[in-house]
Design a protein around this nucleic acid. Structure first.
Lengths: 179, 179
DNA sequence: CTGGGCATGTAAGACGTTACATGATTCC
DNA sequence: GGAATCATGTAACGTCTTACATGCCCAG
């Protein structure tokens, strides 16, 4: 019954113990590139994971009214995570607002449309440059089995995605200009 | 206050009047490639759109206990849709289960991982072949301003996406085999 | 006479976002 | 003195999925 968010949390915890706050930070970057959650969702999910025996925590006196809780994976948590990793992903419905706008683009003023796609192209090129810097910083591809392989492989996916998106935006701009 | 689903409905209605049932069918194919909704969501949204004056309907005696309602865009609906089309899309958080699994893939058994990616690759290649057949069936790219341009441009995006995904799966399989 | 397509709707629950609420410490 | 960071949680609301509920007509 563990949700995908639950597995996202387990996946971060598999790399080392964290507080809920740390997990929320990880969900922004780097996990946020493919899964996100706010801190309120994370604290609630941690309670469910603990009820299911997949994580545990030690309390420390922390800042603020409540105790600080440092969470860690349990043996059951690790086993569930391992099993989940190689199960085929459940297909989520696609939801892409830009493509939906494109579907309706025959109604739009060409000038405004061109500007929207030019802005999108600039955004993707910026991200692409940032990802390429990250890739260069890693250097040697880590071997599978190394936790850093996960980071590298997901970065590779992002790189390919941004290139595909940028290319499509350029194609759209060409279509819009030729007419 | 109109939701993205609302605009998806308006975008379909801009091509001609439809019943809620027809809209649900369109949300499966072709709109389902980039936005989806079940019929229950669609009927609820149509009531909101009508309250906002963006759509209207004529009733006909239909099968079943309720009357059949044929919806159409109002002038206000068309104006709102036109405005929305060229506004920058609100960034939705990425949620990609396969990439999340990849992030945790350093924990997995290599054989099972390879099978998962081989299955994914096969799926993307199948979709790619289907999209290529659709592309061939269209032939000449329609000009922007033609409703069919929307279909063609979104198909183009899907084609690029499937190619990128398939290539990434092949790269993953190569990484997993070399080790 | 049964199953599928046409056609509409309600309700319960899961999931996600945003805002509210508290409070110590550190840096400017 | 004020803002940012660390740290936890609740509440309200909106979106989405799934199940429930009805009932005609047509094809096999």
């Amino acid at each position: 019954m563990t949700s995908t968010l639950g597995f996202a949390i387990l996946a971060v915890l598999a790399r080392g113990e964290r507080t809920g706050y740390d997990l929320a930070a990880a969900m922004r970057r780097p996990v946020g590139y493919f899964w996100t959650a706010g801190h309120s969702q994370i604290h609630a999910e941690l309670q469910k994971l603990r009820a299911a025996g997949l994580v545990g925590f030690e309390t420390e006196r922390g800042p603020g009214p409540q105790d600080k809780k440092v969470y860690h994976l349990t043996a059951e948590g690790l086993a569930e995570l391992r099993e989940w990793v190689t199960e085929p992903p459940r297909a989520r419905p696609e939801r892409d607002e830009l493509v939906l706008k494109t579907f309706a683009s025959w109604l739009a003023e060409p000038g405004l449309l061109r500007r929207m796609f030019a802005d999108q192209l600039a955004m993707h090129e910026e991200r692409l440059a940032a990802y390429e810097r990250e890739e260069a910083a890693i250097g040697e591809p880590p071997p599978p089995g190394d936790p850093r392989f996960g980071n590298y492989a997901t970065l590779r996916c992002g790189l390919g995605y941004e290139r595909h998106r940028a290319e499509w935006c350029r194609w759209m701009l060409a279509q819009l200009s030729s007419a």
